[in-house]
């Protein structure tokens, strides 16, 4: 065996063995592929809040452009969020009836920058028009969220806004948000389960 062959056989051996490796991603179901991330403001006591109102559509952020839309998938998420809030003792009211809490739903599609990072709210001032909640001219504020994951594909976020103290604070503080990422998230059939997952890991949202 010449020197070249002596080198080739170990390389062939390693290449051959590497092909026997178990692929971690191919072993995941759709459900297992999904992650649920929640951030909360620890200073908030939810028993101080009674009512909530849900945005009537979703904000869609698609490659830097954003607009509002209401699809069947959005409606499934909105219904699931309302059910979860009501099950925790909050009363749904119209946005014109001075709700204590507002809830925004946002769909993200492929975007080039880490838009979900701290710049999500700080840089853009919130995608959901503050006028919708009756606080025109106000910006969105609150704790810097989404510090763990940069975002490259699709995601759905829910945000709970403190409307009760917006006037006193001079800003609409985001007191909780939830992030859903993974396979099959833009589906009506997975909406309820995904929303449940976010609320189940946030037991402090309770009247």
């Amino acid at each position: 065996m010449n020197s070249f062959q002596k080198i080739v056989w170990p390389v062939l051996f390693l290449l051959l063995m590497q092909s026997c490796r178990k692929d971690p991603l191919s072993d995941l179901t759709f459900d297992e592929s999904r992650i649920y991330v929640t951030n909360n403001d620890p200073d908030i006591n939810y028993t101080d809040y009674t009512s909530f109102s849900m945005g009537d559509s979703a904000v869609v952020i698609d490659n830097g452009f954003y607009y509002t839309e209401l699809t069947d998938v959005d409606q499934a998420y909105i219904d699931a969020i309302k059910s979860s809030m009501q099950a925790r003792g909050f009363v749904e009211v119209s946005k014109d009836d001075a709700p204590d809490l507002g809830i925004n739903l946002t769909r993200f599609y492929s975007t080039s920058t880490g838009i979900i990072d701290n710049g999500y709210w700080g840089g853009y001032g919130g995608y959901y028009d503050p006028y919708y909640w009756g606080y025109g001219g106000y910006g969105y504020g609150g704790a810097p969220f989404y510090t763990t994951y940069s975002y490259t594909e699709g995601a759905i976020t829910l945000d709970i806004l403190d409307l009760k103290n917006a006037t006193e604070n001079g800003t609409i503080n985001i007191i909780w948000n939830g992030l859903i990422r993974g396979s099959g998230i833009f589906s009506s059939t997975t909406a309820a389960g995904s929303v449940d997952a976010l609320f189940n890991q946030s037991p402090y949202i309770q009247r």
């Binding site: 026997c20 490796r21 178990k22 297992e32 992650i35 649920y36 704790a143 890991q201």
Partner: peptide, 24 residues
């Protein structure tokens, strides 16, 4: 050459000061 692999059931992880991540 040795390949180790293990998938752990879904669990909640403290991924930030006030951040919880539920994942497999």
């Amino acid at each position: 050459w040795q390949d180790y692999y293990e998938k752990f059931p879904r669990k909640e992880y403290q991924s930030g000061e006030n951040e919880i991540t539920s994942a497999v």
